[in-house]
């Protein structure tokens, strides 16, 4: 096929993305620097001076980081185990791992509300065993949000890790062991670096997903606001579209910074990966 025809095929997709994504983003970003007929940074100055806003921002980033770390910590061993299985059992295990993705976040959040609440399963067990006198406050705290988000995103982390891990030849691990490496150091020096691309992709998706998640923090977070619920509140309840736009731009900026940092990190670890 001719080059021009191929480019022509790109056009519908590009138009769609241009009209419905690039233009609104550019307009949103532009609008945050323009108020009362003149260019200004007051929107951002106002945001970063307000300690309430800062607390929300920090909490959200913190929740996203912890969720990402938890997903890595829980996902890596699971993915490694799955990737070493034969094709048949691998398929079954992957299906089980992905299954939670097939239920809606709302349903899952309600399940967690039942499990984490003051009269929930966890508190029943803790009080029943006498580990604490009174039920713990887990629901409607950042901890509940982290639990909900980890549950939400763990399958994605597992899929993206299995993808890279199953392509690592077992010969490589055996070669490392035959050269004197213990299981642990063969893992650290061979498996881990080779899995980094998948790890980074998984981590970016989990982090950005956690940063922008709405339903889970809205249902499990109680009074604790995160950026996205705060944005919604400003736009829909307080009708402050200017502040909502500023928040949106800050979210976009964080996303780009995180993706950039992650990419840099992979290149440093894995120059020829």
């Amino acid at each position: 096929m001719k080059k021009s025809v191929l480019y022509g095929l790109l056009l519908p997709g590009l138009l769609f993305l241009g009209i419905f994504m690039v233009v609104p983003i550019v307009l949103t970003i532009g609008s945050t620097f323009y108020r009362g007929g003149s260019l200004t940074l007051s929107g951002y100055a106002h945001f970063f001076e307000d300690s309430y806003f800062n607390q929300i921002l920090l909490t959200t980033v913190g929740i996203s980081l912890i969720t990402t770390l938890l997903c890595v910590a829980l996902g890596f061993p699971t993915a490694y185990y799955i990737s070493r299985k034969k094709a048949r059992s691998k398929g079954i295990l992957l299906a089980i791992a992905i299954f939670p993705l097939l239920t809606s976040p709302i349903v899952r959040s309600f399940s967690w509300m039942i499990i984490l609440g003051r009269k929930g399963l966890i508190n029943d067990v803790i009080v029943g065993l006498g580990l604490a006198e009174k039920p713990l406050d887990i629901l409607y705290t950042p901890t509940a949000i982290v639990i909900g988000l980890t549950h939400l995103f763990l399958p994605i982390m597992i899929i993206s890790l299995v993808g890279v891990l199953e392509n690592i030849d077992t010969d490589l691990v055996q070669a490392a062991q035959s050269l004197g490496a213990s299981r642990l150091s063969a893992f650290a020096r061979i498996v881990f670096p080779l899995a980094l691309p998948g790890l980074v992709i998984g981590a970016v998706i989990v982090f950005v997903g956690s940063l922008t998640a709405y339903t889970t923090p809205a249902l499990l977070g109680g009074k604790q606001r995160v950026i996205s619920t705060f944005l919604y509140q400003n736009a829909m309840t307080l009708n402050d579209w200017f502040l909502a736009s500023v928040i949106a731009v800050i979210m976009i900026a964080i996303t780009f910074i995180v993706v950039g940092l992650m990419n840099r990190a992979t290149h440093q670890f894995n120059p020829k990966g």
């Binding site: 055996q174 490392a176 061979i190």
Partner: peptide, 10 residues
Amino acid sequence: VFQSYALFPH
């Protein structure tokens, strides 16, 4: 020496 060589690609 492995049939696949098993060199560490990274």
